[in-house]
């Protein structure tokens, strides 16, 4: 078994926008090691979000090969991509994307329910909740939390099913510096303490500095 958890070779994605073909990814090659915290930086339109969406199974690739945790993800059906999102990847979005009607606990539980996991949280996850400072806020609704706290709930939700990789798309994009640093500290802590593999997309070099390795994207290529 290789040490790489993600192996991407010649990944391409072309969109149709009106009558024009947009080449968002033009042949991306990338390898991510198990337990690595990788930051992907680049300007708007460089293709980093598209890479994130393909890795997370939110959209299919046009060409190329993706292997995650030893499994080829290149030509998945819709159902297989749904299963990928359920068990293999966890998402953290810029806008938190919590369900407003559910409590913190409910937002985490729904992710477990979707993955058909039942029973109480395991000890490792309870430790994560303490690390995130959420263990005493499980009954709060998202509107009762600060932006930083909401993003920490999103992180907890993303890793509750122990995904192979955590994908974070501009996780500090909506936060002030203090909350940004808190969230980035949490991500780094998860990476170091439980060995969570993290891919973080950001255009902020200061945020990227929290990662073990930084790769730059420009015009659909990795530099």
């Amino acid at each position: 078994m290789t040490d790489a958890i993600i192996e991407i070779t010649g990944l391409k994605k072309t969109f149709r926008s009106g009558d024009v073909d947009v080449h968002a990814l033009r042949g991306v090659d990338l390898t991510v090691k198990r337990g690595e915290f990788l930051a992907v930086i680049g300007p708007s339109g460089s293709g980093k979000s598209t890479l994130f969406h393909i890795l997370g199974g939110l959209t299919p690739s046009t060409d190329g090969r993706i292997v995650i945790d030893g499994k080829d993800m290149s030509h998945l059906s819709d159902g297989e991509r749904t299963a990928l999102r359920k068990h293999v990847v966890g998402f953290v979005f810029q806008k938190y994307n919590l369900l407003p009607t559910l409590t913190v606990g409910g937002n985490i539980e729904i992710a477990r329910d979707i993955a058909h996991r039942t029973g109480p949280f395991d000890e490792q996850f309870l430790e994560v909740l303490r690390l995130l400072g959420l263990d005493k806020k499980l009954d709060r609704k998202p509107r009762q939390l600060s932006g930083g706290e909401q993003q920490r709930v999103a992180i907890a939700r993303a890793i509750v099913n122990h995904p192979a990789i955590l994908l974070a798309d501009e996780p500090t994009g909506n936060l002030d510096t203090e909350n940004s640093n808190a969230v980035l500290d949490v991500l780094r802590g998860l990476n170091k303490k439980i060995g969570q593999t993290i891919l973080m997309i950001t255009h902020n070099p200061e945020a990227a500095a929290f990662a073990d390795r930084i790769v730059k994207m420009r015009d659909g290529h990795l530099e």
Binding site: T82, A83, R85, F93, N97, L98, L99, A111
Partner: peptide, 16 residues
């Protein structure tokens, strides 16, 4: 719509 998107991102299928 956004809520449905969130559930799908979490891995919820059509049946769910």
């Amino acid at each position: 719509t956004r809520e449905i998107g969130i559930l799908k991102a979490l891995g919820a299928g059509s049946g769910y």
